[in-house]
Write a protein that binds this DNA or RNA. Structure first.
Length: 492
RNA sequence: CGGGAUGUAGCGUAGCCCGGUUAUCGCGCCUGGUUUGGGACCAGGAGGUCGCAAGUUCGAAUCUUGCCAUCCCGACCA
């Protein structure tokens, strides 16, 4: 078979790559570190994007678009932010090519066309946006500004992986400006909740909400909140971040407003983003050795119908019935596809749709029609059953929700089973190797200790959970006093 | 960017060590036919700058050098 998949046990990384490539989500491209998102993968992203966009708008945000390029002088204005991203910036230095006089048919960079000022290709847009906000904000009446943008960004990564880390990726970045610290902090937390709700309810990926340690904080932020998810190989994946930026960018770009008391004050800021990386989280949370498993709520195709026919004359009969069923399903808002191509036989189609993770497959032949039923197969449990055509639409509507719940519950159970407490260094190290997952352990709160643990084990502090209970204990490395446990894991 | 591996048709590969006509096989693709309830079968057919570039040689997929890409392992990161 040409579509043979590597199993998770055999080679987890290869399994992941196989799923992305053979599942038709994405492809490698001619550009180093960049991928092509194929129609099936992009349809998934569109569903994610559309739902997030609705949620942003429900929380009062509007969309806008800022330039891809950031003049270097603006980029460097907020020092910490600039420093944090400097190592991975693509930079435009020229604006023209010309024919190479030495090599016929080849082009070269025109040395005459050097830019006065280099342009940084945005790794994130705080700089260009705050430079713009400066002109938009004079009074407290101009606040808050609640803007989101859907964009591509470029971060020149040394080592890339499909969806998880590519040089260019798609994301959304929210950038808000507020009159008070409280309001900005509230916004930061509110958007973290939006992310957590979206990822759990639509992508069926359970997450831990938390705060990053200073080491892991976004460059230029006062506080970085995050959602962390646990993948099937026991490694953690940061699924989204929401930053309280304090007045750092307002000060760097001199963005002040007159408050009600007629006094100048610096604006308070937030920024928050999720990216196409979430697709990687989705794949590694739900999929199995037979292929992808798509959560129904965002699956590009929720139900696929495969006709089973014998001879030329039965096909039109089945077509007729399927047309009725399709109309009923579409009226209920179900994304349904009729796979009636004659190029492949049913068995091939079954395998193909399993590989692509279509939640429900329906097969129908004359035998079923006579009994007024269809054969229905769930992707998540691989169960097959005969279901009456009467009321099929409503049945599917409920079934899709049940599948959504089931794969979330399965992922949640996995996360819980693989979240353990370690109370000594020996236990901690042993767990990392033998039972990978989240490890809840005491930490003395110093960046030095965190760094040392990372150096020794490759495990990082994923977050300090928001719902953390305070509990006196001793740091697993230093034995120093600690007030709470934090979540460690090896991470993507 | 360092260490390792790989690169032959859309995919998977044989050939390479030991240079020698027209580069092997399977899947896929095209045409026609038979088929269709878990990856169909028969017959015919198309498809290759052997990753790219230079070199050695009468002759290079095969030997040498450089480069590029992908994968794995590190350093960096969402």
């Amino acid at each position: 078979m040409s579509k043979e998949l590597t199993s998770r046990a055999e080679n987890y990384n290869q399994w992941y790559n196989d799923l992305v490539l053979k599942g038709g989500l994405a492809d490698y491209s001619a550009v180093k570190g960049c991928m092509v998102i194929k129609p099936y993968g992009y349809a998934l992203w569109e569903n994610m994007r559309d739902q997030l966009d609705r949620m942003f708008k429900e929380t009062g945000h509007v969309n806008a678009y800022f330039p891809l390029f950031v003049p270097k002088s603006l980029f460097e204005a907020e020092e910490k932010n600039a420093e944090g991203f400097a190592k991975e910036c693509a930079v435009v230095t020229h604006y023209r090519l010309k024919n190479d006089p030495d090599k016929k048919g080849r082009l070269m960079v025109d040395p005459e066309a050097k830019l006065e000022e280099e342009l940084v290709v945005r790794p994130t847009s705080e700089a260009i946006i705050w430079n713009t906000y400066k002109d938009w904000i004079q009074s407290y009446r101009d606040l808050p500004i609640l803007i989101n943008q859907w964009a591509n960004v470029v971060r020149w990564e040394m080592r890339t992986r499909l969806f998880l880390r590519t040089a260019e990726f798609l994301w959304q970045e929210g950038h808000t400006a507020h009159a008070t610290k409280e309001e900005a902090v509230d916004e930061t937390v509110k958007m973290l909740d939006v992310y957590a709700n979206f990822v759990e309810e639509y992508m069926a990926v359970p997450v831990i909400k938390g705060v990053k340690t200073p080491n892991e904080r976004f460059a230029g932020a006062e506080d970085t909140y995050c959602i962390e998810a646990l993948m099937q190989d026991g490694k953690a994946l940061q699924a989204g971040t929401s930053h309280f930026l304090g007045q750092n960018f307002a000060k760097a770009f001199n963005v002040q407003f007159l408050n009600k008391e007629n006094k100048q004050e610096y604006v308070w800021a937030t920024s928050w983003g999720v990216s196409t990386r979430l697709i990687g989280a989705l794949i590694m949370s739900h999929s199995d050795d037979n292929g992808l498993v798509m959560p129904p709520r965002i699956a590009p195709i929720q139900v696929v119908i495969v006709p089973i026919y014998k001879g030329e004359e039965s096909k039109p009969v089945i077509d007729g019935k399927v047309k009725e069923i399709m109309a009923e399903l579409k009226a209920l808002g179900i994304r349904v596809k009729y796979d009636d191509s004659d190029a492949a036989r049913p068995g091939w189609k079954f395998a193909e749709h399993e590989l692509k993770g279509v939640p429900v497959r329906i097969a129908m032949g004359l035998r079923d029609m006579e009994n007024n039923v269809v054969e229905l197969a769930r992707r998540d449990t691989k169960e097959k059953q005969s279901v009456s055509i009467d009321g099929l639409g409503n049945y599917l509507k409920h079934l899709l929700e049940e599948i959504q719940q089931n794969i979330f519950n399965k992922a949640l159970a996995f996360t819980k089973e693989n979240t353990r407490e370690a109370d000594s260094w020996e236990e901690f190290v042993k767990m990392l190797d033998e039972q990978p997952g989240f490890i809840s352990a005491h930490w003395d709160g110093t960046p030095e200790t965190e760094e040392k643990i990372k150096e020794l084990t490759k495990a990082t502090i994923r977050c300090i959970p928001l719902d953390n209970k305070l509990e006196a204990g001793k740091c697993i490395l230093t034995g120093n006093a600690s007030t709470q446990r934090v979540l460690f894991a090896r991470a993507y």
